[in-house]
Design a protein around this nucleic acid. Structure first.
Length: 431
RNA sequence: GGAGAGGUGGCCGAGUCGGCCGAAGGCAGCCGCCUGCUAAGCGGUUACAGGGGCAAAACCUCUGUCCCGGGUUCGAAUCCCGGCCUCUCCGCCA
């Protein structure tokens, strides 16, 4: 969430910045509520000061053996007034909080203006889409023909939007994940973490998943509802909540974390969309990247994070492009963000395979992660996250870009060490 | 699942017939002095958040915070109720 002080001191600037993103309408009300809160605080705190002084005096009088019943009665009334005002302060606090969590992050000045994803800006392209001497097939056809992908049985044991991978298909999924983790930990300076896949409601609140995206989350059913656990929709949830409430020494920043986890999403409201293949699934694997930085570091760390994700595609020799999101399309929590889109020959277009964002202090404030400079007061960290990459979508890209005329698929060179040297996936012999 | 113990400042740890406790003492850190050498001594100092004063910083002042929430009271770290968490033992278990 945004800093209440920023809204209080520069409401007009915040409103302007949110023009494309939405949420500007909330600013005026927050300012009004904030004024109300401070009036109440002044009043109640003066009464508390009065009560504290009087109680002190009553104590002394009693020790001297004097009667203080009159003063006690007077303070009882003051106490009642305080209780009333405390209740009002609490109510206003909650109202402000409820408004504040609805306000999106302010885009960085460098973000290109625009209303929707149509105005996103292509930043660069890498690689040249291969010229096929035949009509390239979509991954689901290739996968099923090669006996790697079994959607029918996944539907039988679960439901639509689930998949079963067989033999070399399952191995390829694991190879991709391990290749990515090795790259990020060995060459890009990330520390690998293994984290809970089920987290509590507080974690979901602090990472902005609740209440807004409740309908997108799978959750457990508990006799005591307050103990409900939620399946993570991304490892970002676990990784970014990790240091909640902590103050990190500045010299330990930036922190660079990566984790491989499954991700679970209900995909409510996407009926009929991307139903073919495994592009949009209820369960998919992802190697996530998260950084915690100082405010000075965060924008260059965003650039390097994007480069880290790109490097996966370069080593896999998959053509891609990088797109910067415009002010109207940059995520709710993000100050700036890029999407990486990989080439899909069958579809003849680039589709999203990674998204990297700088949440700036917005995320650090929400989960309450701060850092302590050598000199000076603790401040909220900047947090960043990105996919490095979505594994299932990487599998799609490999199958589609590396397919041959006979329906076989070449294994990218970078993955062969993870596939026991296997160079090619071929049609299994007919039984 | 059963039984018991406990949650106090960066750490350890006092504090339970309610007030003089934001909290003794120790450790650690910082500043200074002294001394002199593989370290000690002396003095001072060191929490966080919010409000007000101030253009702002410094600073001053007020409020809150001794796991969380509620209650009793003029007043609660201290009493009462509820919750959360941690630890130990038993049972079960990959």
């Amino acid at each position: 969430m945004l800093d209440l002080r920023l809204i209080r001191e520069q409401p007009d600037a915040v409103e302007r910045a949110l023009a494309d993103k939405g949420g500007a309408a909330l600013i005026r009300e927050i300012v009004a509520r904030d004024g109300e809160r401070r009036r109440l605080l002044t009043e109640v705190e003066e009464l508390k000061a009065l009560r504290n002084r009087a109680s002190e005096a009553i104590g002394q009088a009693k020790r001297r053996g004097e009667d203080a019943t009159a003063e006690q009665a007077r303070m009882r009334e003051v106490g009642e007034r305080i209780a009333t005002l405390d209740g009002e302060v609490k109510a206003v606090d909650e109202a402000i909080q409820a408004l504040l969590v609805q306000v999106p992050n302010v885009p960085h000045p460098s973000v290109p203006p625009g209303k929707s994803d149509e105005e996103n800006v292509e930043v660069r392209r890498w690689g040249t889409p291969r010229a096929f001497g035949f009509a390239p097939k979509p991954h689901e056809e290739l996968g099923e023909a090669l006996g790697l992908l079994d959607l029918a049985r996944a539907v039988k044991i679960a439901k639509a939007r689930f998949a079963v991978l067989w033999g070399p298909g399952a191995r390829l999924e694991r190879a991709l994940a391990q290749f990515m983790l090795d790259l990020h930990t060995r060459e890009h300076g990330y520390t690998e973490l293994w984290v809970p896949h089920l987290v509590n409601a507080e974690t979901m609140l602090k990472t902005g998943q609740l209440p807004k995206f409740e309908e997108q989350l799978f959750k457990t059913v508990e006799a005591d509802e307050s103990r409900t656990l939620y399946l993570i929709p991304t490892a970002e949830v676990s990784l970014s909540a990790l240091h909640g409430g902590e103050v990190l020494p500045e010299r330990t920043l930036p922190r660079r974390y990566t984790a491989f986890t499954p991700c679970y999403r209900r995909e409510a409201g996407t009926y009929g969309k991307d139903m073919k293949g495994i592009y949009r699934q209820h369960q998919f694997d992802k190697v996530e990247l998260v950084k915690i930085t100082t405010p000075e570091q965060s924008y260059e760390e965003l650039e390097s994070m994007v480069a880290n994700a790109e490097e996966v595609l370069r080593r896999l020799e998959l053509p891609y492009r990088v797109v910067e999101r415009c002010t109207g399309d940059v995520g709710f929590s993000a100050a700036k963000g890029y999407d990486i889109e990989v080439w899909r020959p069958a579809a003849g277009k680039y589709t999203e395979i990674s998204s990297c964002s700088n949440y700036a202090d917005f995320g650090g404030r929400r989960v309450d992660v701060r850092y302590k400079p050598e000199r000076g007061k603790a401040e909220h960290c900047h947090t960043l996250n990105g996919s490095g990459l979505a594994v299932g979508r990487s599998l799609i890209a490999v199958l589609e870009n590396y397919q041959e005329a006979d329906g076989s698929v070449t294994i990218p060179r970078a993955l062969r060490p993870y596939m026991d040297g296997l160079a090619r996936l071929t049609r299994p012999p007919t039984p």
